[in-house]
């Protein structure tokens, strides 16, 4: 193949990655828009082991080359993730776009990555030398930068099953009803027993990066839902004061206001 490699196994793929300078290609939907001059692609779209959705005792495991459409048709993928990816662009993009690509291209607007953050997602990275599993928090450094090594490939997204089973909240606001990049999105999962919060996650698109404020989340544990929703503004403020909103297609003020409102909505939804 001229200007490309098309391995059929992950092993073969990581060996090529360790030898030559190639750009991993899964769905192409972002890559082809970027129009990289003289690109040499490592095509991952036909590696079976990257196209599986499986589960083990601890995780729902989504292969890096699984498309969003494939995931929407799967019974294993949790509803929060499905809701997030069902609003990505439009069918033709969801049919091609992949979980590995969405995570790997280090966009700050990746809808599946947001859901993964809310669910304590992890990523399995594989190289010719071995593999490692790290949390999304460690993988995503900032917009445009990830923690992947030169010789590594994303093999799987791992979603902890106990998080996948939790009630959740999701909201996306784009510029229109379809074919829209998230201007603000909000994802969270929570556990409430007898009106008391046992676990909570809350994460947003709008900061120019993906982050969990785990220390703030921890301050809500043990609080009653009634108390939190009755004082939604104050509790939201605990997060908001840590957050820095970016301006771009919309202003930082817009993002901040909407995220504040969505915190209120999130807390209210727990009732």
């Amino acid at each position: 193949m001229v200007n490309g490699y098309k391995p059929t196994t992950l092993q073969e793929a990581v060996e090529i990655k360790s030898r030559v300078s190639v750009t991993p290609y899964a769905g192409g939907t972002d890559l082809m828009v970027r129009n990289i001059p003289d690109a040499v692609y490592l095509f991952l779209n036909d590696i079976d082991e990257l196209r599986q959705i499986t589960q083990d005792d601890a995780y729902i495991r989504i292969g890096a080359a699984v498309t969003f459409t494939q995931a929407l048709d799967s019974d294993l993928v949790p509803p929060l993730m499905k809701e997030a990816i069902s609003r990505i662009a439009a069918p033709a993009i969801r049919n091609a776009g992949t979980f590995g690509g969405n995570l790997g291209n280090a966009s700050d607007k990746a809808d599946s990555v947001l859901a993964g953050f809310a669910l304590d997602g992890r990523v399995r990275l594989v190289s010719a030398k071995g593999e490692r599993v790290i949390p999304f928090d460690d993988f995503c450094v900032r917009r445009g930068v990830t923690n992947i090594a030169d010789d590594e490939l994303i093999a799987e997204i791992l979603l902890p099953k106990e998080k996948c089973a939790l009630p959740y909240y999701y909201k996306k606001i784009g510029g229109r009803s379809a074919l829209a990049i998230s201007r603000v999105a909000f994802a969270g999962a929570y556990e409430v027993h007898n009106g008391v919060i046992q676990a909570i996650s809350a994460t947003v698109i709008g900061e120019g990066k993906f982050t969990r404020y785990r220390e703030v989340e921890a301050t809500l544990i043990g609080k009653s839902v009634d108390e939190v929703s009755a004082n939604a503004d104050a509790y939201a403020e605990r997060f908001i004061e840590k957050m820095t909103f970016t301006r771009g297609r919309v202003s930082a003020e817009y993002r901040k206001t909407v995220v504040t409102n969505l915190f209120k909505d999130y807390f209210a939804s727990m009732k």
Partner: peptide
């Protein structure tokens, strides 16, 4: 740029924007 669908084709029966596909795929 994958934003209009005018170039959509079917690959294995599935709708895909052909502007966002490299030949190797």
């Amino acid at each position: 740029e994958g934003e209009c669908g005018a170039c959509a084709v079917l690959i294995d029966g599935v709708l895909v924007n052909s502007c966002c596909v490299a030949m190797g795929a």
